[in-house]
Nucleic acid binder design. Structure first.
Length: 430
RNA sequence: GCGGAUGUAGCUCAAUGGCAGAGCGCUACACUGUGGCUGUAGUUGUUGUGGGUUCGAGCCCCAUCAUCCGCCCCA
């Protein structure tokens, strides 16, 4: 067996055969489109960073347990980037005085996390990151949510398939305060909320009580988490939803007091999008407002809002819903056949003429039986096949066949490009 | 790091401890200048790897590797 002698790919890495590459490029194109219609600039950071960049800011777990770390030839520890935000912070800080704020940046690239691969999660993944920096307002938060909604809509997901759930850290902190939860316990309680959907109600109650909350705090917490009108008590969220209305994406967004996002650095609005109907319960994107982005890299205080979306979960969801555009193997819609050895160069010359006329075209690379060449064309998703046999060569003509409907005609060589273009245009309209 | 499952043809999967199979695919022909559709014929194996038990192992046992599903974690 071939696999016996094959060196396997590194665990958790991704191999993009043309079909998967098409999906990745599709997601990239849709992310670019959503970003750019809102005026965001594309940027990127190194894939390799020193471990120090992450040590200060990120959770311990992320660096110590979930990053690829190795020594370079000089013995210095290097990390394959597990996230983008620290790199963003450094790059902003380095040119804080020169950049034009408010700054809107987006990026799409590979990240690595040393985790156990399972459904919706691999060790190597692509992530779309987008941030607005230098503005601190619910309206700015709304814009980022609108970008996310625009993307979700552009890939064909309707509001009943995918929804963005919103909450606010300050609102929840106020609720926790009212329940008498000390500020140093907030993270613990947030963790409890995050875990709640994975446990039975009874088990969760017991778990909460075991971890330091009183019965009355538990009761109060459950009341808060069940109150979907709570946003009306938050001036920020009232303004946020008003802005979402104006931006035309309100139907994709819902307030949900159960959205916490366990991250240390979110300080205001937080949001997370979920697929409501599929098999993946993982968040498809998530983000929020953060302050002090530059605190650890020595810049002046800077507030921002942003989110990240991974390609793996998104790909699964689109696949399950049949929303992935059909894969066409050949980027060239035209095949020029090679009838026999004597007419080989005649066909090659035709490909050059067609390319000069702006048509993507591939030649069969050697003489072969026509059935074989047509079969190849069919499998590659090719729409038009040309034949130059002895008859055509004699009269200076070319036979052009439309594979979609099986019709063909023989035209003057000077007319070939025009004939093909017409076929391709009529197919594109359907 | 912890728990569970699965590895058999290119793919999807069968096979009481007793001759390793089917469908799809692939190749050829029908159709020597035309793909898809149809028919006929043909083709496909170190049963993940290494050991053990047995007269005999795809099947039972041990180890190992890989994949999948959970837990943990999710920046």
């Amino acid at each position: 067996m071939a696999s016996k002698s094959t060196i396997p790919a590194v665990k958790g890495t991704r191999e993009f055969y043309p079909e998967e590459m098409a999906l990745r490029n599709y997601l990239y194109a849709k992310a670019a489109q959503a970003s750019q219609t809102f005026g965001y600039q594309e940027w990127d950071a190194p894939f390799l960073e020193t471990i120090d960049l992450y040590a200060a800011k990120s959770g311990e777990e992320l660096v110590k347990e979930q990053s690829f770390v190795f020594n370079d030839r000089g013995g210095d520890p290097i990390t394959l980037r597990p996230e983008l935000t620290p790199s963003l912070a450094r790059m902003i800080a380095a040119r804080q005085g020169q950049l034009t704020f408010p700054l809107r940046w987006w990026s799409f690239g590979p990240f690595w996390r040393y985790e156990r691969p399972q459904k919706g999660r691999s060790r190597e993944f692509f992530q779309w990151n987008i941030d607005m920096l230098g503005v601190n307002s619910p309206e700015a938060d709304a814009e980022l949510i609108a970008v996310a909604a625009t993307f979700i809509q552009s890939v064909g997901l309707t509001p009943d398939m995918a929804t963005i759930f919103v909450n606010n850290r300050r609102l929840m902190d106020a609720q926790f305060d009212a329940l008498g939860v000390p500020s140093e316990q907030r993270m613990t309680v947030s963790g409890m909320v995050d875990r709640r959907p994975k446990m039975s109600p009874e088990a969760w109650d017991a778990y909460v009580l075991e971890n330091g909350l009183t019965q009355s705090q538990l009761d109060g917490l459950k009341k808060v988490l069940a109150n979907y009108d709570l946003w009306q008590e938050s001036d920020e969220l009232v303004r946020l939803f008003k802005a979402l209305d104006a931006l035309g994406v309100r139907e994709y967004v819902k307030f949900d007091p159960n959205i916490m996002r366990g991250l240390l650095y979110y300080t205001g609005t937080v949001f997370e999008a979920f697929d409501l109907s599929g098999s993946v319960r993982r968040a498809i994107l998530g983000g929020g407002r953060y302050d002090n982005l530059l605190a650890d890299v020595g810049g002046d205080p800077l507030s921002g809002v942003g989110f990240a979306m991974g390609d793996v979960v998104m790909g699964i969801i689109l696949q399950e819903k049949g929303l992935i555009p059909p894969f066409v193997p050949s980027p060239a819609p035209v095949l020029v056949t090679v009838f026999d050895e004597s007419l080989w160069m005649n066909s090659f010359a035709l490909t050059a003429e067609l390319r000069a006329a702006g048509v993507n075209v591939l030649a069969y690379p050697e003489p072969a039986k026509l059935p074989k060449q047509f079969k190849f064309a069919d499998r590659m998703g090719i729409r038009v096949v040309t034949v130059i046999g002895p008859d055509e060569a004699e009269t200076g003509k070319v036979t052009v066949k439309n594979l979609a409907n099986g019709t063909q005609e023989t035209v003057e060589r000077s007319e070939v490009a025009k004939t093909i273009t017409k076929i391709l245009e009529s197919a594109a309209q359907q």
